[in-house]
Simulated assay, not measured.
Amino acid sequence: MTRSQAASPKGKTTYFQVSPHLVVPGTLGGFSVYLKRKGRMVLYAPRGEGFTETHRQRLLDLGVNRVWVEAADRAGYEEYVRANLGTMVEDARIPVKERAEAWCGASETMIREMLAEDAPDEQLIMRFARVRTLLRNTLKFFSDPDTLRELGRFLRAGFDAHRHGLSVMVLNAAVLETYDGLPDRLLHACCAGAVLHDIGKTRLEGALRTADPQDLDQEQLSVWKTHPSVGVSVCSRLSLEQETLQCILFHHEREDGSGFPSGGRGEDLPFYPRVLGLCNAYDDLVRGGPVRPGLSAFDALCRIKEERGAYDSDMLRRLITVLSKAELV
């Protein structure tokens, strides 16, 4: 979904554009679909009417690549996308770019809500349940290099925690998929950990929530380094697998024992939080921050290689392979 809207005089109805591919046949939407003809909006399918394959095919035959929805119906459309996202991302007839855009839009909204600083327990539990369902329904979507390339294009921009979490999760899933025989249960648990890995930062005070650790003094850095433990505490109210909690707690550990909070070394730690730690470090480097520009993929990988002993060489090779196949490096 794009954020562009049809220009309208003050007080008039406004609209936003969506792809006709993303209106799933056989479903009912809480929104009406319009076509734009000679500068005027023409009703094509009213709210609540079943959208059929004939509807969609007729639009595609006419060369229509965008339809319009009233701005007042945005919440209904976004809920519709969330409900049908699993079907959308599996539909090979929909261009990969549009599936990736739909996935990113829906996922960002859900993660932003879940990471809200003031979310009470019951809302956190409900919102995480929705994210867990999203992961289970769409994780296989990331295994295709073309998909990964499009997702990377959407997710790389910006410094928001929810976008960083999604980007790390996508990379983490793609690298874990290179390990033969990894059970789906473990993949799901690790990707939930990737999404939640920085949730502890939402409980830090003031600027520490978004601070670059390079800019902190020793006292501030000590507090900032509590965020993995704080994250596990926050997530104690959720029903999480042990692997998910380990990903949250150990995502800043390093192979040479220089990480935190435990200072564990290499094989002392499970392999999956170490994969997450590598993906997290890479995304931090390419994303940059408000005062620190992001690096190119090549420069970020060089920086990681320079930290000799900090990251497992086989895991780094797998990350490079994933990025290369997706033409992201």
Rank of each mutant, 00 (worst) to 15 (best):
D184M: 07
Q218L: 07
E53T: 02
I125R: 09
G259M: 05
Q17E: 14
F159A: 11
G29D: 02
E327R: 13
L208Q: 02
E241N: 02
L240F: 00
A161R: 15
R287M: 14
P25N: 09
M110C: 01
Q214L: 12
L316T: 09
L60R: 12
D121A: 05
R318E: 11
L245Y: 02
A281K: 12
W103E: 04
T109W: 01
A106D: 00
L328H: 05
T14R: 15
R40Y: 11
L285G: 09
L148P: 04
T147H: 11
G152Y: 05
S233R: 04
K140W: 13
V275L: 10
Q214D: 08
L323G: 05
D314H: 08
A72S: 15
R209I: 02
C191Y: 03
S239D: 11
L285W: 13
L196T: 04
L148G: 04
A174K: 11
I111G: 01
V230M: 02
R156H: 14
G263W: 09
K140E: 14
A6M: 15
D284F: 14
V64L: 10
P20W: 04
C279H: 07
R153N: 08
E327N: 10
L316Y: 06
S222Q: 08
R37C: 07
V67T: 13
W103N: 02
S143G: 07
H252A: 12
M126H: 00
D73T: 04
R93C: 11
A211P: 03
G63T: 13
A116F: 06
K325M: 14
A116T: 01
Q17D: 13
M41A: 14
D217P: 00
R317V: 09
G257A: 10
L187Y: 02
R254H: 13
M88I: 15
L269W: 08
